[in-house]
Design a protein around this nucleic acid. Structure first.
Lengths: 299, 299
DNA sequence: GTTTTACTATTCATAATTGAATAGGGCATG
DNA sequence: CATGCCCTATTCAATTATGAATAGTAAAAC
């Protein structure tokens, strides 16, 4: 009979995926002793050895691996359940979890959401800023704002706009160093670029400028830090045009450069679309972000 | 995220199926307050009303019904998991749960299993006697002995034998009333038959004897009680021939009557076949029951 | 070779969950 | 109309599960 503690399954999956009790505990939001006890209890209940207690972690045995596939099915079922439940929620109050890129989550969304929380005091917002793609099926978030075309099935996606990028710097920097005349002139400036990522380098090379990472005298992988460095007058950076336009102390230049555009998408799972709370939030964000994108065109 | 208590789902399913907190608690082996709290907590967590608290029970709401289908999927996943786990158990010790018809569970299996428990002291036996067909997928039992051809998919079934039926009575009864000469002579005897079931009546009618339930002067729906009534010399009954032959005080007669035979099957789920414990028990039962069936042919 | 790091297992006080008991409400039966 | 039955909600003591702290181990980093 299926009358054992179903939570043990969750712990089992977590340990199997994380590879150690400690890591699993961190991921699941509980403590290492608890997870350890859960696994032991499950093994005792089933009369099966699931893990090889190894050096520096737990490793699945063969039978453990077999059982894991079934346990994963269970988790997927639970995920579907909670997804469906979220979609069935009645009323406008509750929590909405939004995931967005670092830049959007840090520089754009907070002020929008501040306005929103006045309009909808019953809705609580959780905002997570990450450039990692999240799994909406597993409800990492209810709504995701992403700068890439969504690929997952079962998603409802609305394209908000193509956000243009532009080179920019603060007035104070330009006053000191002058405004670059063309792309090659950029190399004579303090360029702010990426550290371990290399999309910017590849982009510049594609445009014909032969550069390596040392062309950038200030390097960071955080686009938010990059932005603040530009704001502080450190040098020249690349940023979303609507953001630049919003900032009186900044100037964009070289508009003729054929820089790529960022497609901005709002996505949510189709099963939560029916929730008035989530739908309301999504509609608000769509409108607000459309305005944000249009503000660049106007200037 | 799927980080709510998975056990709440089990309670939800139980209540939805049982129709009331109390019934669900009984079925699941816990208490009514606990189940009630689980349901409330789930509703609070999800922000959804699952049940209409009605008179004399809990009734699913529409959203509750929708969510139930997903919850049932989860339970099926859990069942598959525990099934697979049972099949993966190592070693010969543990519990084996056997389900059989009332008659077999009462009159035949106990002495076989007494012998078995001497051979395999490490194996604990749970024996449930019921004529209801059980769900091996949900692990109501590990092994089922049934007198009907199995229909469920995913089952491993072995036919043991066709058990012949025969009319019988005790020597003491026959000494008092004489042995019936033919089928129609039966009506002049004290016949032991069924109460609310009517398969015996239909059977006799199919043979050409026009009878209704009042043709039976002693009626019971329990085949075990019927057997004991025959043993006690109350009258004439219908029973499995191997059972009759085993009992020195009983005589069978009218062997020319074209009575149906009972096909006896041993079934188990294919996923538990690999468990040495269960396999050992099944093999023993198959051998012992084959002997039992053959004992009738020998005489 | 020493230090640091990441991990598991155990202990123990605390917090959370549980179930027996109880009160109360409808509904059927006598 | 009273009695019994089956149900739910609530209370409270006791059991159970939890996590902070700790000791110990093995590998990796310095």
């Amino acid at each position: 009979m299926s009358d054992f503690d179903w939570n043990l399954l969750r712990s089992f999956v977590a340990v199997a995926e994380a590879g150690s009790l400690s890591a699993a505990a961190r991921k699941i939001g509980t403590s290492q002793p608890t997870i350890g006890r859960h696994v032991s209890e499950l093994e005792r209940d089933l009369g099966v050895t699931l893990f090889r207690r190894g050096l520096g972690g737990y490793e699945l045995t063969d039978t453990g691996a077999t059982l894991l596939t079934h346990a994963l099915n269970v988790r997927e079922g639970v995920d579907r359940f909670s997804l469906q439940a979220a979609g069935a929620e009645e009323g406008l109050s509750g929590t909405v979890r939004i995931s967005a890129s670092e830049v959007m989550a840090t520089l754009v969304l907070p002020q929008m959401l501040a306005r929103f929380s006045v309009e909808e005091p019953g809705i609580e917002i959780e905002l997570v800023g990450t450039n990692a793609l999240d799994n909406l099926l597993r409800r990492d978030a209810d709504i995701a704002i992403r700068m890439v075309t969504p690929s997952q099935e079962e998603l409802v996606a609305r394209k908000i706009a193509d956000i243009p990028l532009a080179m920019c710097a603060s007035e104070s920097y330009l006053a000191r160093h002058g405004t670059p005349a063309d792309m090659f002139d950029l190399m004579n400036h303090v360029m702010i670029g990426q550290d371990r990522e290399d999309v910017m380098i590849k982009g510049f090379n594609a445009l014909g400028a032969k550069v390596d990472r040392h062309a950038f005298r200030f390097r960071t992988d955080s686009q938010v830090i990059m932005w603040h460095a530009v704001l502080a007058g450190m040098g020249i950076g690349l940023a979303q045009l609507p953001l630049i336009d919003r900032e009186p102390s900044l100037r964009s230049f070289l508009p003729e450069l054929p820089l790529p555009v960022l497609p901005m998408w709002l996505t949510m799972h189709k099963d939560v679309r029916t929730s008035p709370r989530i739908r309301r939030t999504a509609d608000f964000l769509y409108a607000a972000l459309s305005d944000f994108a249009r503000s660049a065109e106007a200037t």
